[in-house]
Amino acid sequence: MDGIILAIESSGDGGGAAVLRGGEVESQVEVSGPRRHGSELMPCIDKACLDAAINRGDMDVIAVNCGPGSYTGLRIGLATAATLGFALDKPVVGVPCFDAMVLQYVMADDFDVELKRELWPVLDARRDEVMTARFEYDNGVFTRATGDMLVPPETLHEQAARQAIVFGGGVAPYAAKFNKDHLHVDEGEFGLKPGSVALAAYRQLADIDDAGKIERKLVQPRYFRRVLAKTIEERAGEV
Protein backbone atom coordinates (compact mmCIF):
# COMPACT_ATOMS: atom_id res chain seq x y z
CA MET A 1 0.00 0.00 0.00
CA ASP A 2 1.59 3.18 -1.17
CA GLY A 3 -0.56 5.72 0.69
CA ILE A 4 0.07 8.00 3.65
CA ILE A 5 0.63 6.41 7.05
CA LEU A 6 0.44 8.37 10.30
CA ALA A 7 2.42 6.40 12.88
CA ILE A 8 2.28 6.70 16.67
CA GLU A 9 4.97 5.46 19.05
CA SER A 10 4.38 5.70 22.79
CA SER A 11 5.51 2.35 24.17
CA GLY A 12 8.70 3.50 25.85
CA ASP A 13 10.45 6.57 27.21
CA GLY A 14 10.55 8.40 23.90
CA GLY A 15 8.31 8.25 20.89
CA GLY A 16 6.05 10.66 19.11
CA ALA A 17 4.55 10.66 15.65
CA ALA A 18 5.71 10.24 12.06
CA VAL A 19 4.19 10.60 8.63
CA LEU A 20 5.24 8.18 5.91
CA ARG A 21 4.41 8.62 2.25
CA GLY A 22 5.36 6.25 -0.54
CA GLY A 23 7.55 4.19 1.76
CA GLU A 24 9.58 7.20 2.94
CA VAL A 25 9.38 8.87 6.34
CA GLU A 26 8.49 12.46 5.52
CA SER A 27 8.29 13.85 9.00
CA GLN A 28 9.00 12.71 12.52
CA VAL A 29 8.33 14.62 15.74
CA GLU A 30 9.40 13.25 19.11
CA VAL A 31 8.28 13.89 22.68
CA SER A 32 10.68 15.84 24.92
CA GLY A 33 11.34 13.06 27.42
CA PRO A 34 10.05 10.10 29.43
CA ARG A 35 6.40 10.04 30.52
CA ARG A 36 5.48 12.93 28.26
CA HIS A 37 3.11 11.04 25.96
CA GLY A 38 0.00 12.07 27.84
CA SER A 39 0.58 15.72 27.17
CA GLU A 40 2.84 15.75 24.10
CA LEU A 41 1.68 12.95 21.81
CA MET A 42 -1.14 14.94 20.23
CA PRO A 43 1.06 18.04 19.61
CA CYS A 44 3.62 15.66 18.00
CA ILE A 45 0.92 14.31 15.68
CA ASP A 46 -0.19 17.83 14.84
CA LYS A 47 3.34 18.92 14.01
CA ALA A 48 4.22 15.76 12.10
CA CYS A 49 1.22 16.37 9.83
CA LEU A 50 2.14 20.02 9.47
CA ASP A 51 5.78 19.17 8.63
CA ALA A 52 4.66 16.65 6.03
CA ALA A 53 2.17 19.21 4.66
CA ILE A 54 -0.83 16.92 5.04
CA ASN A 55 -4.28 17.77 6.36
CA ARG A 56 -6.09 15.95 9.16
CA GLY A 57 -7.99 13.65 6.87
CA ASP A 58 -5.23 13.00 4.33
CA MET A 59 -3.72 9.89 5.90
CA ASP A 60 -4.87 6.52 4.59
CA VAL A 61 -3.93 4.49 7.63
CA ILE A 62 -3.14 5.17 11.27
CA ALA A 63 -0.48 2.86 12.67
CA VAL A 64 0.29 2.49 16.35
CA ASN A 65 2.82 0.51 18.34
CA CYS A 66 0.56 -1.97 20.16
CA GLY A 67 3.24 -3.28 22.50
CA PRO A 68 4.60 -4.76 24.51
CA GLY A 69 5.70 -1.68 26.41
CA SER A 70 4.70 0.76 29.12
CA TYR A 71 1.09 0.25 30.15
CA THR A 72 0.29 3.95 30.37
CA GLY A 73 2.18 4.80 27.21
CA LEU A 74 0.44 2.10 25.17
CA ARG A 75 -2.92 3.15 26.49
CA ILE A 76 -2.36 6.74 25.45
CA GLY A 77 -1.17 5.71 22.00
CA LEU A 78 -3.96 3.22 21.42
CA ALA A 79 -6.73 5.52 22.65
CA THR A 80 -5.37 8.30 20.45
CA ALA A 81 -5.07 6.07 17.38
CA ALA A 82 -8.50 4.46 17.83
CA THR A 83 -10.17 7.84 18.22
CA LEU A 84 -8.41 9.32 15.20
CA GLY A 85 -9.47 6.31 13.16
CA PHE A 86 -13.05 6.67 14.36
CA ALA A 87 -13.30 10.42 13.82
CA LEU A 88 -11.49 10.49 10.47
CA ASP A 89 -12.97 7.19 9.29
CA LYS A 90 -9.58 5.58 8.70
CA PRO A 91 -8.34 2.08 9.47
CA VAL A 92 -6.02 1.64 12.46
CA VAL A 93 -3.34 -1.04 12.45
CA GLY A 94 -1.30 -2.25 15.42
CA VAL A 95 2.43 -2.65 14.90
CA PRO A 96 4.06 -5.14 17.29
CA CYS A 97 6.85 -3.38 19.16
CA PHE A 98 9.57 -5.96 18.40
CA ASP A 99 8.92 -5.81 14.65
CA ALA A 100 9.54 -2.07 14.68
CA MET A 101 12.60 -2.45 16.92
CA VAL A 102 14.18 -5.03 14.59
CA LEU A 103 13.52 -2.88 11.55
CA GLN A 104 15.17 0.11 13.19
CA TYR A 105 18.11 -2.01 14.37
CA VAL A 106 18.92 -3.53 10.99
CA MET A 107 18.59 -0.19 9.22
CA ALA A 108 21.37 1.37 11.31
CA ASP A 109 24.48 2.23 9.26
CA ASP A 110 26.79 -0.04 11.26
CA PHE A 111 24.62 -3.15 11.04
CA ASP A 112 26.02 -5.90 8.88
CA VAL A 113 23.14 -7.82 7.31
CA GLU A 114 25.52 -10.31 5.76
CA LEU A 115 26.41 -11.83 9.12
CA LYS A 116 22.85 -13.20 9.02
CA ARG A 117 22.67 -13.32 12.79
CA GLU A 118 19.56 -14.10 14.72
CA LEU A 119 18.05 -11.05 16.47
CA TRP A 120 16.46 -10.87 19.93
CA PRO A 121 14.99 -7.46 20.77
CA VAL A 122 14.44 -7.30 24.55
CA LEU A 123 12.34 -5.11 26.83
CA ASP A 124 12.42 -5.02 30.62
CA ALA A 125 9.30 -6.82 31.83
CA ARG A 126 10.33 -6.29 35.51
CA ARG A 127 10.34 -9.12 38.08
CA ASP A 128 13.67 -10.29 36.66
CA GLU A 129 12.29 -11.10 33.26
CA VAL A 130 12.65 -9.69 29.77
CA MET A 131 10.06 -9.87 27.06
CA THR A 132 11.42 -10.79 23.68
CA ALA A 133 10.88 -12.59 20.39
CA ARG A 134 13.22 -14.34 17.94
CA PHE A 135 13.81 -12.87 14.49
CA GLU A 136 15.65 -14.88 11.84
CA TYR A 137 17.50 -13.83 8.73
CA ASP A 138 15.49 -14.78 5.69
CA ASN A 139 16.61 -13.84 2.23
CA GLY A 140 17.81 -10.29 2.94
CA VAL A 141 15.26 -9.44 5.61
CA PHE A 142 14.63 -10.42 9.23
CA THR A 143 11.37 -12.16 9.95
CA ARG A 144 9.71 -13.03 13.21
CA ALA A 145 10.09 -16.67 14.19
CA THR A 146 8.26 -16.66 17.53
CA GLY A 147 5.51 -14.85 19.39
CA ASP A 148 6.30 -12.47 22.24
CA MET A 149 7.64 -14.34 25.25
CA LEU A 150 8.68 -13.71 28.83
CA VAL A 151 12.14 -15.11 29.56
CA PRO A 152 14.58 -14.78 32.49
CA PRO A 153 17.63 -13.06 30.93
CA GLU A 154 20.02 -15.75 32.23
CA THR A 155 18.27 -18.49 30.23
CA LEU A 156 17.62 -16.63 26.98
CA HIS A 157 20.70 -18.23 25.35
CA GLU A 158 19.12 -21.67 25.68
CA GLN A 159 16.70 -20.76 22.91
CA ALA A 160 19.04 -18.61 20.82
CA ALA A 161 21.53 -19.45 18.12
CA ARG A 162 25.22 -18.88 18.81
CA GLN A 163 26.22 -15.22 18.36
CA ALA A 164 22.59 -14.15 18.25
CA ILE A 165 22.33 -10.41 18.87
CA VAL A 166 20.42 -9.23 21.92
CA PHE A 167 19.55 -5.53 21.90
CA GLY A 168 17.02 -3.04 23.19
CA GLY A 169 15.93 -1.30 26.38
CA GLY A 170 15.83 -4.59 28.28
CA VAL A 171 19.62 -5.09 27.98
CA ALA A 172 20.87 -2.44 30.44
CA PRO A 173 18.93 -3.58 33.55
CA TYR A 174 20.15 -7.18 33.15
CA ALA A 175 23.47 -6.71 31.30
CA ALA A 176 25.33 -9.04 33.68
CA LYS A 177 22.74 -11.80 33.47
CA PHE A 178 22.86 -12.65 29.77
CA ASN A 179 25.21 -15.46 28.77
CA LYS A 180 27.82 -13.50 26.86
CA ASP A 181 29.79 -16.59 25.81
CA HIS A 182 26.81 -17.59 23.74
CA LEU A 183 25.15 -14.29 22.86
CA HIS A 184 26.30 -11.04 21.37
CA VAL A 185 24.82 -8.52 23.79
CA ASP A 186 24.58 -5.03 22.34
CA GLU A 187 24.69 -2.69 25.31
CA GLY A 188 24.16 0.42 23.22
CA GLU A 189 21.24 2.66 24.01
CA PHE A 190 18.16 1.93 21.98
CA GLY A 191 15.15 4.21 21.67
CA LEU A 192 12.42 3.32 19.24
CA LYS A 193 11.59 6.10 16.75
CA PRO A 194 8.09 6.82 15.48
CA GLY A 195 9.50 6.61 11.94
CA SER A 196 10.44 2.98 12.55
CA VAL A 197 6.85 2.20 13.55
CA ALA A 198 5.75 3.86 10.30
CA LEU A 199 8.19 1.75 8.27
CA ALA A 200 7.16 -1.44 10.05
CA ALA A 201 3.53 -0.63 9.27
CA TYR A 202 4.43 0.02 5.64
CA ARG A 203 6.01 -3.41 5.50
CA GLN A 204 3.12 -5.04 7.32
CA LEU A 205 0.72 -3.59 4.75
CA ALA A 206 2.89 -4.46 1.72
CA ASP A 207 0.43 -6.99 0.39
CA ILE A 208 -2.60 -4.73 0.68
CA ASP A 209 -3.23 -2.59 -2.38
CA ASP A 210 -6.03 -0.50 -0.94
CA ALA A 211 -6.40 0.91 2.59
CA GLY A 212 -10.14 0.40 2.24
CA LYS A 213 -9.54 -3.35 2.44
CA ILE A 214 -7.97 -3.17 5.89
CA GLU A 215 -10.23 -4.67 8.51
CA ARG A 216 -11.78 -2.11 10.88
CA LYS A 217 -11.31 -3.34 14.41
CA LEU A 218 -10.07 -2.13 17.75
CA VAL A 219 -6.34 -2.77 18.10
CA GLN A 220 -5.66 -4.86 21.21
CA PRO A 221 -2.66 -3.95 23.37
CA ARG A 222 0.06 -6.56 23.89
CA TYR A 223 1.03 -6.16 27.53
CA PHE A 224 3.89 -7.84 29.34
CA ARG A 225 1.52 -9.61 31.66
CA ARG A 226 -2.18 -9.95 32.11
CA VAL A 227 -3.99 -8.28 35.00
CA LEU A 228 -2.34 -9.14 38.30
CA ALA A 229 -5.41 -8.51 40.42
CA LYS A 230 -7.36 -11.59 41.44
CA THR A 231 -11.09 -12.01 41.66
CA ILE A 232 -12.70 -12.87 44.98
CA GLU A 233 -13.29 -16.41 43.70
CA GLU A 234 -9.63 -16.80 42.73
CA ARG A 235 -8.48 -15.55 46.13
CA ALA A 236 -10.86 -17.88 47.94
CA GLY A 237 -9.45 -20.79 45.97
CA GLU A 238 -6.03 -20.11 47.49
CA VAL A 239 -7.03 -20.90 51.09
Binding site: M42, R75, I76, G77, A79, A87, L88
Partner: peptide, 16 residues
Protein backbone atom coordinates in the same frame (compact mmCIF):
# COMPACT_ATOMS: atom_id res chain seq x y z
CA UNK B 1 -4.68 5.53 33.57
CA UNK B 2 -8.42 6.02 33.30
CA UNK B 3 -8.03 9.78 32.97
CA UNK B 4 -5.46 9.28 30.20
CA UNK B 5 -7.79 7.15 28.11
CA UNK B 6 -10.44 9.88 28.20
CA UNK B 7 -8.05 12.77 27.71
CA UNK B 8 -6.18 11.08 24.82
CA UNK B 9 -9.44 10.30 23.06
CA UNK B 10 -10.84 13.78 23.66
CA UNK B 11 -7.71 15.39 22.27
CA UNK B 12 -7.73 13.16 19.20
CA UNK B 13 -11.41 13.86 18.63
CA UNK B 14 -11.02 17.63 19.03
CA UNK B 15 -8.02 17.65 16.72
CA UNK B 16 -9.64 15.44 14.09
Amino acid sequence: GSLYVGLSSAKALAWA
